[in-house]
């Protein structure tokens, strides 16, 4: 069974085609990354996969079932963009993670196990709004994995995190992949995508390129494909002498 198949998806928002004719598939478990410029339709694509947006044309299949049918009966772990929740709502970490469960007899065990995996077990009774950005992100990951889903979809999970928290987060993601979970992640971190992912899907209103880990390619040609023009890394000129 294919974890995910996106077929000719076009999404129209406020009369405009935000993404057009996007098709790709994930054939086996692993780490898959969506990259693309701001406004390129990455989040729209993810929200369509999660059935939060209806495509004008095309279909999405999760484990060979239409996404809306699969999502009614099963849980796909989902980490939305950081702006989606009310940051100052006084809710305990335990209750945030509980949101990721539909019905479970061993609710407490599942929640505490998920918190353990992300290193936040000791914070279960703490007010979520008092945590740091990195800790909040860990709790939201625990919420995404608490139902032990086979597919995990993460929308820009490291945006706004410091360097150390980003690294910890990437290690966590890799551990999920090693445990057999399929992870689809939206990121702006092209370096991470090139180093660690099995496949990269480049979205700029449509699928502009599709690179697998076996492909040989240069960063320059990749960036040209992604942005449509060459992007030179910014240098500060330290130590070059004037």
């Amino acid at each position: 069974m294919e974890p995910l198949r996106v077929e000719n998806v076009t999404v129209v928002l406020n009369g405009q085609e935000v993404i057009k004719d996007v098709s790709f598939s994930i054939k086996k478990e692993g780490l898959y990354v969506i990259v693309g410029p701001n406004g390129g339709g990455k989040t729209t694509l993810v929200r369509t996969i999660m059935n939060l947006l209806k495509p004008a044309r095309g279909s999405v299949y999760i484990f060979d079932q239409p996404n809306y049918e699969y999502l009614q009966r099963n849980v796909v772990g989902y980490l939305p963009q950081r702006s989606s929740f009310r940051r100052f709502f006084p809710i305990r970490v335990y209750d945030v993670v509980k949101m990721g469960l539909r019905e479970a007899k061993n609710e407490r065990d599942l929640i505490m196990t998920a918190l353990e995996k992300v290193g936040m077990r000791q914070f279960s009774q703490v007010n979520f709004s008092t945590l740091s950005g990195g800790q909040q992100q860990r709790v939201l990951i625990a919420r995404a994995i608490v139902s032990q889903p086979k597919l995990l979809v993460l929308d820009e999970p490291v945006t706004g995190l410091d360097y150390e928290s980003q690294n910890e987060f990437y290690l966590l993601i890799k551990s999920f992949v090693e445990d057999g979970t399929t992870v689809l992640m939206v990121t702006h971190d092209v370096g991470f995508a090139m180093d660690f992912s099995d496949q990269i899907f480049c979205i700029n209103r449509t699928l502009v390129c599709h690179i697998s880990s076996q492909d040989k390619f240069s960063m320059d040609s990749f960036l040209v494909k992604l942005y449509g023009y060459g992007v030179k890394p910014l240098t500060h000129g330290h130590g070059e002498g004037e």
């Binding site: 009310r86 949101m99 990721g100």
Partner: peptide, 14 residues
Amino acid sequence: LVHFTFDEDFTRLM
């Protein structure tokens, strides 16, 4: 209601 108040998107999914 509490979940929807805290995070609308995620609650719509669940």
